[in-house]
């Protein structure tokens, strides 16, 4: 359980986060979305006590992060940047953290296997690829088997198999009742992964709801016809809204059955009739006011 209340963070003149409030629930994956510079990293860093909020607060499991008894056993976090000494091996990086947290060193081997990095564990991080670093960072977050995961763009640098692996990992973490808060740019990713979304834009919270609610945009149908002009007239005559989608296609705000009936009544030939769901990407762009 993560709760952010009226969080504001100012860096000099830049108001990075302004009065943001939201929560992430146990047993659910919460996607944290926003354009570049929206304040995602800033918010996540405030949650784990790395920066001091200008005002407002953030709590994890009911306490400020810094007041947690054994933070690595409660919260695992991966923050955007690559935080490793290049001359230290991946295994030693994890051992250093385990020793500091009072976690048995052997746990380092377990998480190395879990993130499929055991072959490279003895090599210096200098030689790691971006994806390997991302896996090592995740391994560090998983060391204490925490109930809460806070991840800033963890899919960055992962190959398709890695992304799938990450998705399964986070889904099963949520299924075990853990709280997962994960920021991302890749909206397709999030819609497959998250139960809830929190959208932030220019430091302000735009919405918090479930993925299903955000993408539920009513019925919509994509229709292709060689006689698109007449089809368009028929649609307009029925009082329906449409927009062009290429030279021979329309997207109509109605169910496929309705559009098919209209076309049949006028004897218009159809080449394609597909139900369309608003994607998270469309919903996102609409909410943050970017693109169409």
């Amino acid at each position: 359980m993560i709760e952010v209340s009226n969080l504001t963070k100012r860096f000099g003149r830049v108001l990075a986060v302004e009065d943001a409030s939201f929560s992430a629930q146990p047993g659910r994956v919460t996607g944290f979305l926003g354009p570049n510079g929206a304040g995602k990293t800033t918010t996540l860093r405030a949650i784990v006590g790395l920066l001091q909020p200008t005002s407002g607060s953030a709590t994890v499991l009911g306490k400020p992060y810094r007041a947690l008894d054994q933070p690595s056993r409660c919260v695992g976090a991966v923050l955007e940047t690559s935080n490793f000494h290049p001359g230290r091996s991946g295994r030693n990086h994890l051992r250093v953290l385990a020793v500091a947290a009072g976690i048995p060193r052997s746990r380092a081997e377990d998480v190395l296997k879990l993130v499929e990095l055991d072959d490279a564990a003895g090599r210096r991080v200098r030689g790691y690829s971006l994806g390997m670093r991302q896996r090592l960072a995740l391994a560090g977050a998983l060391l204490g088997e925490p109930d809460v995961l806070v991840l800033d763009e963890p899919a960055n640098g992962l190959d398709p198999a890695g992304i799938r692996w990450l998705r399964d990992l986070l889904r099963s973490a949520a299924a075990e009742g853990r709280t997962v808060l994960v920021s991302s740019h890749v909206l397709g990713e999030v819609s497959q992964l998250a139960d809830d979304v929190v959208i932030i834009n220019r430091g302000r919270l735009v919405t918090q709801s479930t993925v299903a609610e955000v993408t539920a945009g009513g019925d919509r149908t994509r229709v292709r016809s060689p006689d698109v002009t007449r089809l368009r007239e028929a649609v307009a005559a029925a009082g329906l809204v449409d927009r062009e989608a290429g030279t021979d296609a329309l997207v109509v705000e109605a169910a496929p059955a309705r559009v098919g009936e209209l076309a049949a009544a006028k004897g218009i030939v159809l080449h394609e009739l597909v139900a369309e769901k608003a994607t998270l990407e469309e919903a996102f762009l609409e909410l943050v006011g970017g693109g169409g």
């Binding site: 006590g49 790395l50 933070p71 690595s72 919260v75 940047t81 690559s82 935080n83």
Partner: peptide, 18 residues
């Protein structure tokens, strides 16, 4: 200063926020 230079101060303070 190694911690600040390489960003390991982040995991270090995550493990031990005091």
């Amino acid at each position: 200063t190694n911690e600040y230079r390489h960003g390991t101060i982040t995991p270090t303070f995550l493990v031990a926020p005091a």
